[in-house]
Design a protein around this nucleic acid. Structure first.
Lengths: 156, 156
DNA sequence: TGACAATACATGTTATGACATGTAATTTGA
DNA sequence: TCAAATTACATGTCATAACATGTATTGTCA
């Protein structure tokens, strides 16, 4: 019997190895989650990456963070933080201020408008989270997180 | 103690729930895998999506597949199969032929050049696969795949 | 201290993604 | 049978991603 994933992808032939299926499964699940989050956030006028930045800036508080640090904290790295922040600044979600002590640094801070979006989007995102993890027990979630930790840790 | 993922993302505050961490973990792991595959495939001049198309076309054999069917089988859906195939045709990786029975259909078939890339890239991809799943037991892999199946299945 | 390296960000360019719309071919049903 | 709907693909347009390169500022050390 074909696996769940093999059916979803209408695969002509089965996966050669469970490890192959596992990696494809991670990527496909992430692609689906990304679409779901994109849909959910559309009503608030922001993308998943922008949402991620807002969360990071909220975590940094009023000290803010410079662009490089934001880039390091992103779940999905982007090689163009400058223009990502340009767009968010245009939307009024954050402000930028050049650091007087080190004029190379530009400190980014979330605005009240940005914070409001985080608060407003919370119920929507919580619903998505529950919908997609609701059938998993605490132990299964723990094992899942640990297995993914192991996948990210490359050997050698 | 902060979790592995919290450290990676230098999070100021811990995840509120394990289910939240699990979803972020899936997306981050996929982002890292995507980069790794992108790097690995660069030497062969193709992207992960193009590699995916080549695999799909190899699976379809000499009957080929139309664009819509390719789109349905992609791990990460793209809303522009036409131009994806345009580029692959330009690279000589596949051919397109309008179906005489139903002239709306365009049948795509992998070329020998495309097949050769699949064969040549195999050891590289196998190494990546082993590097990222080598520490997981057969049982852990099975549980991982099942947990991800459950995440993709939204309730309600 | 002053040349060189490193850092942080900005910008230019090209490719790809997203979204809406257009077009040709086929199917459907009054 | 033929107008309308559907299907499959193509195209236009704009936004974003990817990649290389440029520029201003600071750090380092001979």
């Amino acid at each position: 019997m074909p696996s769940r994933l093999e059916s979803e992808l209408k695969q002509a032939r089965p996966f050669a190895r469970k490890s192959e299926e596992a990696l494809v499964s991670i990527m496909r699940t992430a692609a689906i989650l990304d679409h779901v989050f994109q849909d959910g956030l559309r009503a608030f006028g922001i993308t998943p990456t922008q949402y991620n930045v807002l969360r990071i800036l909220r975590g940094a508080g009023k000290d803010g963070l410079c662009g490089r640090e934001i880039g390091e904290r992103l779940v999905s790295k982007v090689p163009d933080v400058s223009r990502l922040l340009d767009r968010m600044e245009d939307l009024g979600l954050m402000t930028r201020e050049r650091d007087p002590d080190d004029r190379r640094h530009v400190t980014a801070r979330v605005t009240p408008k940005g914070l409001k979006i985080l608060i407003d989007a919370e119920p929507t995102l919580r619903t998505i989270e529950e919908r997609h993890t609701g059938t998993l027990s605490a132990g299964e979630l723990k094992d899942l997180v640990e297995a993914l930790d192991a996948v990210r840790t490359s050997q050698r």
